[in-house]
């Protein structure tokens, strides 16, 4: 029956309405019983931001790119004497790294811009507080979240090897060896068949 015909059959819509509700009743409901049953989140869902302090160079990119300025960083410089070097090197040491999750809008830009993978998403989301001031997580608390960061996804076996691996392999093979990029693609294009 065409759609036009459906519309002109009297009472058809009424029957359809009853059928929809009855069908919904026989299916499982979509309710998630959260506090009793843990939700099934996608593996890399974005719950909270974790800090790997050793990777941070205090470049301040995250704090500057943050749209609502909720990252607070303090640091000082330390001299590191390298034996054999002409001069002592300087190194940034992190004093304070706070993220105010009452301001954060979970855009993830800080994680995107971090050049040294010091910031990571973790799927933990149960850090609600009764006082809004407690939502300011200091670097210890942010560091604690690192335990919950899921391992990175495995490398695509069909993709190009990572730059580090490629460089190491080239160095091991000696000068003049073909680069992986050259081996991955055939050197001569196949002739198009007529």
């Amino acid at each position: 029956m065409s759609e036009q015909g459906d519309r002109h059959t009297p009472g058809r819509g009424l029957i359809n309405g009853l059928a929809v509700t009855l069908k919904t009743m026989t299916r499982r409901s979509g309710t998630q019983q959260y506090p009793d049953v843990e939700p099934e989140l996608p593996p890399r869902s974005r719950g909270v931001i974790a800090l790997l302090e050793e990777n941070c160079t205090v470049c301040m990119l995250c704090a500057r790119e943050c749209p609502d300025w909720c990252i607070y960083i303090d640091s000082h410089k330390e001299e590191v004497v390298v034996p054999g070097a002409a001069r002592a090197r300087q190194r940034n040491v992190l004093d304070k790294f706070d993220i105010d999750f009452s301001l954060c809008m979970y855009c993830g830009i800080c994680i995107e811009v971090c050049p040294f993978d010091a910031l990571h998403w973790t799927p933990e989301f149960e850090y609600a507080e009764t006082d809004v001031l407690n939502l300011l997580h200091d670097k210890n608390r942010l560091g604690d979240w690192m335990r919950t960061v899921p391992p990175p996804p495995a490398h695509d076996v069909l993709g190009e090897p990572s730059k580090e691996e490629a460089t190491a392999a080239r160095k091991a093979a000696g000068p003049g060896a073909p680069t992986p990029a050259q081996t991955a693609r055939p050197a001569v294009r196949p002739e198009p068949k007529p």
């Binding site: 509700t21 009855l22 919904t24 009743m25 299916r27 409901s29 979509g30 309710t31 019983q33």
Partner: peptide, 13 residues
Amino acid sequence: KVMAHMQSRLGPM
């Protein structure tokens, strides 16, 4: 209960 399940909810639990 019936209304909840018809609306894909659970109702009082």
